[in-house]
């Protein structure tokens, strides 16, 4: 049952890609080499080596606790905020090691934005939520520019039509799906190069999920996107490349089509056919 639906989803993605003539591989935006993560005594991520290609959606799948979220958080150094977390190996963004002491984490995060599992709008107005990033980074020289950034970001996140009459009402008052799109708009407003999404739809209903997936597909034009998901259908629907993690190890990475139709590794096959997970 499971495999059939995944295959169906695969087919549509494949059709899309063929229609766009997007067959040649893009250059690597992020290169992780031998990345290890320890939480205290726990070895949470083991020797992960992986490329994230520019202009594509890469999805991380795997059973819960497999390290996919941990790896995602390595990519913009969100792990720094966790006590007792150590990262070793290299992670390069455009060829620069982001764990190099010379790299400034604030500047890095301005380039690599993130959207979380649970929508987390600030307890501020919708406008202020989106304007937050541009304000702290000083991206707008005046009010008009700021307005423009906010409107464009909301537009890109597909939320503008729904909220344009109530920009001053609190962001926490929106529905779950709207809140998540607000968070995406907030991330876009900083004009990042990469957007990381940590199970962005897990707290949402199917309709809101569909909207976000649609949005991810549109955003691919301008941003490199990495998405962690526990739903294989979602990975199949939105991503071009898929990486499968298991017990802190990267088992297999490849074109989404190949992973779902012809996995090379037994574990991957077991997972996508629903034998465990």
């Amino acid at each position: 049952m499971e495999t059939v639906t995944v295959r169906d989803a695969m087919q549509t993605t494949l059709d899309n890609r063929l229609a766009e003539g997007d067959a040649t591989p893009m250059p690597a935006k992020i290169q992780a080499r031998q990345t290890n993560v320890h939480y205290g005594d726990k070895h949470a991520l083991k020797d992960v080596t992986l490329d994230v290609r520019e202009g594509e959606v890469t999805s991380f799948i795997g059973p819960s606790g497999c390290g996919k979220s941990t790896f995602l958080r390595c990519l913009n150094r969100m792990n720094d905020t966790i006590d007792g977390c150590r990262v070793s190996g290299t992670v390069q963004l455009d060829g620069e090691d982001i764990y190099d002491p010379k790299i400034d984490v604030v500047q890095l995060r301005a380039r690599v934005g993130m959207v979380f599992q649970k929508p987390n709008p600030f307890p501020k107005s919708i406008y202020d939520n989106v304007a937050y990033g541009p304000r702290i980074h000083g991206l707008a020289a005046n009010k008009d520019e700021l307005d423009e950034i906010v409107l464009t970001s909301l537009e890109k996140a597909g939320l503008l039509a729904e909220v344009k009459d109530r920009m001053e009402s609190p962001g926490t008052g929106l529905s779950g799906g709207q809140q998540q799109r607000l968070c995406i708009a907030r991330a876009i407003a900083v004009n990042p190069e990469v957007i990381l999404m940590d199970e962005p739809c897990s707290a949402l209903d199917p309709i809101a999920t569909a909207k976000i997936e649609e949005l991810i597909d549109e955003l691919r034009e301008n941003y490199t996107i990495v998405i962690v998901t526990h739903s294989m259908q979602q990975a199949a629907r939105v991503s071009q490349r898929t990486a499968f993690f298991h017990l802190g190890e990267l088992i297999e990475v490849g074109d989404t089509e190949q992973i779902f139709t012809n996995p090379k590794h037994k574990l991957t096959q077991g997972y996508i056919t629903g034998r465990f997970g």
């Binding site: 913009n76 969100m78 905020t81 984490v105 604030v106 500047q107 890095l108 995060r109 301005a110 934005g113 993130m114 959207v115 979380f116 649970k118 987390n120 709008p121 600030f122 307890p123 937050y132 990033g133 702290i136 980074h137 968070c183 907030r186 991330a187 900083v190």
Partner: peptide, 14 residues
């Protein structure tokens, strides 16, 4: 909630 902090840090706030 920590999520609030994460949201700000992820935007590159100090």
């Amino acid at each position: 909630p920590q999520a609030m902090r994460d949201g700000a840090y992820a935007l590159g706030a100090t």
